[in-house]
Design a protein around this nucleic acid. Sequence first.
DNA 1: ACCTGAACACCGTTCAAGT
DNA 2: ACCTGAACACCGTTCAAGT
Lengths: 256, 256
Amino acid sequence: MAATAPRRRGPRRATTEGEILDAALALLDQGGATAVSVRGIAARVGVAPNAVYTYFPDKAAVVKALVERLLSEVNHDVFADRAQPWRLRVEALALELRQRLTAHPGVVQLMISGPVTGPQALALHEALLELLDDAGLNPADAPRASYLLFVYIVGSLALVVADVEEPGPLPPEAGWIARRRQALAKTPADHYPRAATAAATRAAYISTEQYLWGLHRLLDGIATSAQPSIEQRARDAIHQDGHSSPHNTPATSPLH
Amino acid sequence: MAATAPRRRGPRRATTEGEILDAALALLDQGGATAVSVRGIAARVGVAPNAVYTYFPDKAAVVKALVERLLSEVNHDVFADRAQPWRLRVEALALELRQRLTAHPGVVQLMISGPVTGPQALALHEALLELLDDAGLNPADAPRASYLLFVYIVGSLALVVADVEEPGPLPPEAGWIARRRQALAKTPADHYPRAATAAATRAAYISTEQYLWGLHRLLDGIATSAQPSIEQRARDAIHQDGHSSPHNTPATSPLH
DNA sequence: ACCTGAACACCGTTCAAGT
DNA sequence: ACCTGAACACCGTTCAAGT
């Protein structure tokens, strides 16, 4: 795709494709997903609105490229170490993605405004498949599990971001939860007794702790059904049954 | 909220608040989330754009009311039967929500454009908490599990809807998957070997079957960690330990 | 190849005015 | 209470024209 362009030797005037994405990112960060506009980008770059169409066919292409750029900032090293237990590696991936994407809250909305099929998204998918293969999942379950994890991660972020109405960076977690607790305390106990009782827990839905709690339940579910049992793995060591191929890690939960 | 208005006796001119939501829904169904505009609604109702502001303070309020209306169409009966195993009940809820929301694909984007806190959303939350309580989850885990399920359901629907770019009703599943398989077959095996091998499975990510597969893993994870084991439940029948209160259902997976 | 001016068909929202 | 005309500050995209 990115053919080695002739690279003009004149001093000013940068790549201008990167400039456009820089401008789009700046708009995203200060105004949220709705603030990313072709006209806004053009104004920031210092150019007429339609000049953007020299580099991108339409706004959707700009958004797609922006999503790819942010996905490219995900550090694959944090979950690449095959000596680590697979659960810890998945957890590292989930936390890394959460951190990178919540740093630009609006990007989640942009991501789910169209199919996520760019090279960076595919590379992440590939890495996760590798990871789950290392975990001993069979080839039929690994992709299913990878999508399950992706759905959970994206869904979590989408709901977290949706909870704040003002654009800009997400508020610090502690104060955010406190504010939610205050609001949820008004839940009418006569109509919604259980929701009212659980108000404090509900306030923490947007927390990293809830995020990890859910992830661990999910990993339990994947391990339970898609990994061989301890007894089965013992037998596997002698007689392979073609359904599973345990590699290196035990199915212990790291934090639970 | 809905105080009994004087109800004019003149023949024409309906509630006009419902008319607005009808128009918004029609726009949503034929043009997707982006087609829901104040001006479009006004044109459909046959009124000046600013007339909408007589009934709603802003567009966000219209969207919120529309989401609530669609959530109100969710049939609680399909998961209300306490004689049914809890897993089947959760599955019924998940399928009911999926069916209702995919009937109006754009609504998922509208839902996650702001906090989901209306009465209908709360009622659903309450019902799910009741259900998980029936399942024997302790009061600390039930709300966490309910949010986990909600995240999964909403995340799944968001990604399913994001996969189609044209607005309007979702395509029939079989042809949709076939089209995806055709596209994913082009995955370069040299760069993404596992993703390429799993192309057929990836094509079915948007299927109801994958949706249920993920849900079952999730239920396994919830049952494993938050429900007492079989032995523990046997002991529970005699000696209550205050951590769990099993009611009526075994932890068998219905479809797996 | 890269950019512009001008235009088209849209947005959400406000304000003053009318009934 | 309910609605309108007019306006303001925005959108994405196209087209013909310029360098």
